[in-house]
Design a protein around this nucleic acid. Structure first.
Lengths: 190, 190
DNA sequence: GTCTATAAGTCGATAGAC
DNA sequence: GTCTATCGACTTATAGAC
């Protein structure tokens, strides 16, 4: 992996460590050692450990926000919109595995503005997903069911897909995408 | 909540705190304060912070192990077995929400024997789930699909259902169970 | 069984030399 | 931009009084 700046290298490495042990269990000394430098030197590139976490998480959160904002106003069926959401989750899972894991597991260690910012993006994302599901039920494309549980069933699998992908990196994205659409939308019973 | 021993009260309270902030971010002082006592006094009831974590996690892991061991040899269809597994996940989600969250998020902070023990139980559990899915495909009850992804789709939702349940505690278990069977087994498309 | 005091080490972060 | 040295607070855990 090549980096344009030392700061990006630090953030990339931090995401890898945070994913394995969690934000709280990784010390600045651990991070420095992984980069073959001393902890004090990190502070020439970043202001605090907290800043590293917020950069990692908010960047991924913004990726999700941008995608759902582009999908929602489209003239498309609810199923097409859900498929596009699934594709985007898989894209982020593949391209930003470590950062996605941090977002999932360490968001509660964000502070102040970064935490508010994250929670606001997450709430908005879920509200927009909910409206797609409601559209689908109204237009008789989706089964009439508990909307909150349908929303959760979809998101829980998509959010944690990185756990599966980490152990199965050789799978083709096309196969992964098709199978996930099948499983999530059509179920597994013949 | 009433407790038969002080040790059980400590473990119950620890699970609540670990769930909110994660094992590493909860100090023995935090735990003591939540119990209205001093940190040093905790050590009259438990040997170490690590012991608390392993008691919390291994107890839940053994619940899962016992259930799948009782389901696997039954003379039942693969779908009936999967339904029984879903019911058990929901039962544990409802009865041991905090401990289940610890198992999901903090298992990697287990050490030595406890870690080996946990990983062995998890691997065995997944292997037995896999054999149920294989049985289902062989007997043409389940669609022919990527077994590993079907397994992951099911478990990812069941394992993180506590996140949804924590915000929707008033839902009836019967409704929750029926909806989850629908979503996971039959999909959401009409 | 709970307390105070404390050991021995780690934490995030800073100052200042080079 | 990296280093050594260090600060002050916090960490898990123990010793011993009550």
């Amino acid at each position: 992996m090549k980096f344009t700046t030392r700061k990006k290298e630090i953030i990339f490495t931090a995401a890898k460590l945070f994913r394995k042990k969690g934000y709280s269990a990784v010390s600045m000394r651990d991070l420095a050692q992984a980069l073959d430098m001393k902890a004090a030197s990190l502070y020439n590139h970043i202001n605090s450990k907290q800043e590293i976490l917020s950069i990692i998480i908010l960047e991924v959160a913004e990726n999700f926000t941008q995608h759902i904002d582009s999908v929602l106003p489209q003239e498309a069926s609810s199923i097409e919109k859900l498929e596009s959401v699934i594709e985007n989750h898989i894209k982020i899972t593949v391209e930003k595995t470590d950062a996605l894991a941090c977002l999932n597991n360490d968001w509660m260690h964000l502070e102040q503005l970064a935490l508010e910012n994250y929670l606001q993006m997450r709430n908005t994302y879920e509200a927009k997903m909910r409206s797609i599901i409601e559209q689908g039920i109204k237009e008789k494309e989706l089964k009439t069911a508990n909307i909150e549980l349908v929303l959760f069933s979809l998101l829980s699998t998509l959010r944690t897909l990185y756990l599966w992908y980490a152990k199965n990196r050789t799978v083709s994205i096309k196969l992964l995408t098709n199978e996930m659409k099948q499983n999530l939308l059509l179920g597994i019973i013949l």
